[in-house]
Write a protein that binds this DNA or RNA. Structure first.
Lengths: 237, 237
DNA sequence: TTAATAAGTGTACTTTTGACAATTATTATG
DNA sequence: CATAATAATTGTCAAAAGTACACTTATTAA
C-alpha cells in the first residue's frame, strides 16, 4: 500500500494551544484569564487559547495567540504538557498543548489588550475554569515551583530592576512559604547572578532598598544549570 | 455564528505518538529502535510510533503502541514533549507527542516482539534516525538526566533485585561519568529506599554482591519529592 | 597456599545549610 | 529638633552534607 494511503486511514484531530500566564505584581503570584467569547460556556473564565494553523510551528502558534489576545511579545513561554482526553472538549475532540508564560504585571499592564476581558487573578483565589483548564493550571504551578527551585527562572517575573526583598516576595509567593531573609539573600548572592546598582527604590520603606539587575551573560550560561534557590524543596510535588 | 461552525473553520492535523525507550543491561544505557516498515525511508531506524485513535487518551495510545510493537506492558512511560514543526514529517503535517519509557533489558528481552525488527542501540552509538527522532532522543536523554538527579526514577531501569554496584553503573551510564563508590553508596543508603536481601549475586565478582530491592511504600512517597542523587549536576543541561 | 578480583566500609576536611537578632538609614511625628 | 517607627542590611555558630581518599574482606581459580 502506498504510504499516503496509510496516512489517509488515520483520523485527524483538532489541535489547540492554551497558555497559562503567570504574573507577579510585587505582592502576589497571579494568572491572566479571559472570559470566553463564544456562546457555549459564555462567561466562563478560560486560559488564553487558540488553534494551530497549518504552517506554523507550535512555538510560533503560542506566540501568535498570546500576541493576538494580549498584545504581548518577547515573553518567556515554555511548553508544559499536552492534554488529550477524548472528553476534554465536549464540542469536538481536541488535543491541547499547554504553554506557560512568565511576565511582570506592571511592565506589561498597559500593553494588555482589554478587548477580550483579560483579567488577573490571584493563584490562591481562582474562578472555575473551562474544560480541563484547572488541571493545566495546577500542573503549571507545579512546574513553575519545580523549575524555579533549580533554574534562575524567577527573574522573568520581575521588572528589569528589582530589589532583594521583591525577589524574596516572589519566591515566597511561588512556594507559599516564608523564608529567612538572611539565608535567602546569602543564597541569591552566592549565585553571582545579580549586579548591584547605585540607585535605591524608596516608597516601600523609609530606608529604601538597593536595586539590582541580572548579569545577563551569567544568566544565559546558568539558565540551564542546576542551582538550588529553594532550601526546602519538600514542598514541591 | 454557531460554535460548531467556528470549529469547522479550523484545520485538523494528524497526531502521532513516539516513544523513546531506554533500557539498561547492567553495562550500558540503551535505546530500543525499530526499522521502519513502510516504503518511504524504508530501512531507516525509527522510534516506536503510531497514531492517536479517536477514543483513547494520550497515555492509553502510547501504552497501546508500545504493546503492539514490543509486547511490553506496565512500563514507566512519561510524556516528554510535543514536536510540531510543519516540516517535520515530509508526507503530511503531523504533530507528534513524544513519550519516554524506562525498562530493564534482560527482564523484558524475551517479551519483545521481533516482528518489527526491534533492536537495542547504545546511546553512545546511535544510527541515523527518521524525521526529527534524533532531536527527540536528545531531549529524552536530557530529561532522563534531569529527572534521575532528583527523583528515584533510575530503579525503573533495573531488575527487581539488584546490587549497589549495578545501580552505580546505571547512574554512571546515565551521566557518562565515574563516581566514587564510597560516596555513592552512602548517598543511596541515606535515602533509605533500599532493602538489603539475604542473597548475594555472584558471577560478576568472586566475593559476590548483596542484592537489594526497593522499599515500595517509601518509593511511592518519595517519587515526587526532590532527592539529590547526583552530586555534580553541572553535567546536566 | 597464594594470587586475583570486585565488594564493602571509615575518616578527616571543607562547604553548605539553618537557626537566630542587632544595627542602619530614612521618614514621620510630637 | 529629638524620637519613634519602619523596613533594609548584615554576621555567627552549630549541624549537616559533600568531597577526597585507601584499606580490608570474601571468594574463586591457579
Amino acid at each position: 500500500m502506498h504510504i499516503l494511503e496509510l496516512y489517509k486511514q488515520e483520523t485527524k484531530c483538532f489541535v489547540a494551544l492554551d497558555s497559562i500566564i503567570f504574573g507577579f505584581d510585587g505582592e502576589e503570584l497571579k494568572l491572566l484569564l479571559v472570559k470566553r467569547g463564544v456562546e457555549t460556556d459564555k462567561d466562563t473564565w478560560s486560559l488564553m487559547g487558540g488553534w494551530l494553523r497549518p504552517n506554523e510551528t507550535l512555538q510560533q502558534a503560542s506566540d501568535r495567540i498570546l500576541f493576538e489576545l494580549t498584545g504581548l511579545t518577547d515573553v518567556y513561554l515554555e511548553q508544559l504538557h499536552v492534554f488529550g482526553d477524548p472528553e476534554r472538549d465536549p464540542i469536538e475532540r481536541t488535543v491541547s498543548i499547554a504553554y506557560f508564560a512568565l511576565i511582570n504585571v506592571p511592565d506589561y499592564e498597559t500593553r494588555i489588550s482589554h478587548t477580550y476581558d483579560a483579567q488577573w487573578f490571584s493563584i490562591t483565589d481562582l474562578p472555575e475554569l473551562l474544560f480541563d483548564h484547572s488541571e493545566m493550571v495546577n500542573l503549571a504551578i507545579e512546574r513553575l515551583r519545580y523549575k524555579a527551585a533549580f533554574h534562575p527562572i524567577g527573574f522573568e517575573l520581575l521588572p528589569e530592576k528589582f530589589t532583594i526583598p521583591q525577589l524574596q516576595n516572589l519566591y515566597q509567593a511561588i512556594y507559599g512559604t516564608d523564608m529567612d531573609k538572611r539565608n535567602f539573600s546569602r543564597k541569591i548572592m552566592s549565585t553571582k547572578l545579580l549586579i548591584k546598582l547605585k540607585e535605591k527604590q524608596k516608597g516601600n520603606s523609609k530606608k529604601g532598598a538597593y536595586l539590582y539587575k541580572i548579569d545577563n551573560e551569567r544568566y544565559k550560561t546558568m539558565m540551564h544549570s542546576f542551582l538550588n534557590f529553594v532550601t526546602n524543596p519538600e514542598v514541591l510535588v
